[in-house]
């Protein structure tokens, strides 16, 4: 059974169709990279998976369970699917440590000491040593994004969604975030990443999909995707960004 199964997903913003018949199946431990020009619907697509966006037609299943079924509580669904945003969205009024422990304590009712131990381990893993008691504004962009990854991991999700995690970063900070993501991928995390980092895609993606106008135009393993893209739009896109 696939970790995530997406069938004939259609979504409209008013009259404008943002997603057109999207079908995907993501296996456990698979890393899927989604690329495409801005406005192609790739962010909307992954945000449908944890229901930050609603959709009008189609179905999404997490381990065989429909995410819109009445038994599936939306908050529970979101504890199983972590998300990392382009703008980090750390809570500026809370310390790094509290950013990471808030959801485990409030949603999963984990004891504070336990949540803090886990949080410190995760912060260590993403390379934020000794910064646990600082506030987000005291950290660099790259550090903030790594805290955001730790925050998402603290819920022990089965799937991680990355919505252009490096697009708001200064160039010299991109790699520190990508390295954490590569690490995660090697550890067997199921990941869906919207990104323009083609080096990252080439190295860790199991599959790359190219979206434009709300449709998936191309889908291939990295080697094939970069060597001989079939669709003309993909070729044009790759020529622009490589």
């Amino acid at each position: 059974m696939a970790m995530i199964e997406i069938r004939s997903l259609n979504k409209w913003f008013g009259d404008f169709q943002v997603l057109k018949n999207v079908n995907q199946s993501v296996e456990k431990g698979e890393v899927l990279v989604i690329c495409g020009p801005s406005g192609s619907g790739k962010s909307t697509f992954i945000r449908c998976i944890n229901r930050l966006e609603d959709f009008q037609q189609g179905a999404i299943q997490l381990e065989g369970k429909d995410i819109k079924s009445p038994e599936m509580n939306v908050n529970t669904l979101r504890t199983e699917i972590g998300i990392v945003f382009q703008q980090f969205n750390l809570y500026p009024h809370l310390t790094v440590l509290k950013n990471v422990t808030l959801a485990p304590i409030k949603v999963k009712k984990v004891r504070r000491e336990e949540a803090e131990t886990t949080a410190l381990q995760l912060l260590d893993r993403v390379g934020i040593h000794d910064q646990a008691l600082k506030y987000p504004a005291e950290l660099s962009g790259g550090q903030q994004q790594r805290v955001a990854i730790a925050r998402a991991l603290a819920m022990r999700p089965k799937v991680m969604l990355f919505d252009e995690p490096t697009s708001a970063l200064d160039p010299e900070m991109i790699n520190e975030v990508l390295n954490v993501m590569k690490d995660l991928a090697r550890d067997g995390m199921t990941m869906l990443c919207v990104t323009h980092e083609m080096g990252f895609a080439r190295e860790v993606a199991d599959r790359i999909i190219f979206m434009d106008g709300g449709e998936i135009l191309e889908e291939a393993p990295p080697s094939e995707f970069f060597k001989n893209p079939r669709h003309e739009r993909t070729r044009a896109f790759l020529k622009e960004i490589l």
């Binding site: 930050l52 908050n75 979101r78 504890t79 972590g82 945003f85 703008q87 969205n89 809570y91 959801a103």
Partner: peptide, 15 residues
């Protein structure tokens, strides 16, 4: 407040 604050909170499972 930036919309991302609510999204991050809801996205992590908070009601």
């Amino acid at each position: 407040l930036p919309r991302g604050q609510m999204e991050a909170a809801r996205g992590s499972g908070l009601s």
